[in-house]
Amino acid sequence: MNWLTDYVKPKLDFFGKKELPENLWVKDPDSGEMVFHKDLEANQYVVPSSGYHMAIRAKERLKHFFDDGEYEVFAQPQVASDPLKFRDERRYTDKLKENRSKTGVEDTIHAGLGKVNGQFVTACVQDFKFMGGSLGMAAGEAIIASMEEAVRRKTPYVMFAASGGARMQEGILSLMQLPRTTVAVQILREAGLPYIVVLTNPTTGGVSASYAMLGDVHIAEPGALIGFAGPRVIEQTIREKLPEGFQRAEYLKEHGMVDMVVPRTQLKETISNLLTLLMHLPKADSAQEPEPTVEQIVDDVIEAGSQDGQNDADGVQADGEDKITKVTTVSASGGGFAVASSADPAAN
């Protein structure tokens, strides 16, 4: 037994701990401007003056994404460690250990369930700090488990992708995460749950060639590098300099691969709007007003349902199944609200 197997993740993260020391100035890699780290942190690591999007840790991202920064953290599923006995300059197991102590996380996926403007959402973030967000068995299993959990809990699913691609130290088992995660996306889709992908800097290789490009809606963060082959590989292959802005978020939008480019600070509202629209829910109240009571939510949904009824009459949507989905969604949120006092939506 070691600290890894002994370690039990707390159900809720409170983020009381500061990762950076006080009084630290951070350099904007783009403009060279020095930014006070607290300003940066408050602005989700987007440089306020230039709008440059710096890397953000997975937990930080979910803290900003979920209401009040509260959410239930999913445990990392256990997987075989180093099944190939991969030999590099160092052993892969040592590299994993080193990355775990350096980053404070077990692997690249951080997933959880919380509320976004009052609506329950399952979200998954790839932490680029952990071995470049590379996709191995641990990440694949965590993505599959979280998507399955979203299906069980009937919540939409948001994936914040960030990865250099497959984890080479796991060889073919890493490649197998492409079809495996794709199966999970199919399960999510068949359950009628929205799947939103946020492509962040960078999303390349096997990750872009699987779950990150299979969303119902694709959102990219400004300036994010997104593509299949990395720029270095392409340059080596074609032996010429790549054009300015090639494989950047805005370029992807121009070429029809993403629906929109949205600054990080507006992601929550954009996603909330998309999800309520896709799930026939009333517009979410984004302001941090008192939370609606269960009765209010139910009333709102009944109202939405009756509007749908009109649609039925018009022949626009005559789908009974659709209503069932809606009702179960309500019961899921209702359950969540009911147990909110125990601060544990998992009780659902």
């Binding site: 872009s208 060639a209 490009m213 292959t237 790549l242 090639f246």
Partner: peptide
């Protein structure tokens, strides 16, 4: 193929859809 045209036309998405 890692080329400009392939990326422009969505190599990653094409592979993902084919696997799917």
């Amino acid at each position: 193929y890692p080329g400009i045209g392939a990326e422009e036309r969505g190599q990653a998405e094409a592979i993902a859809r084919s696997t799917e």
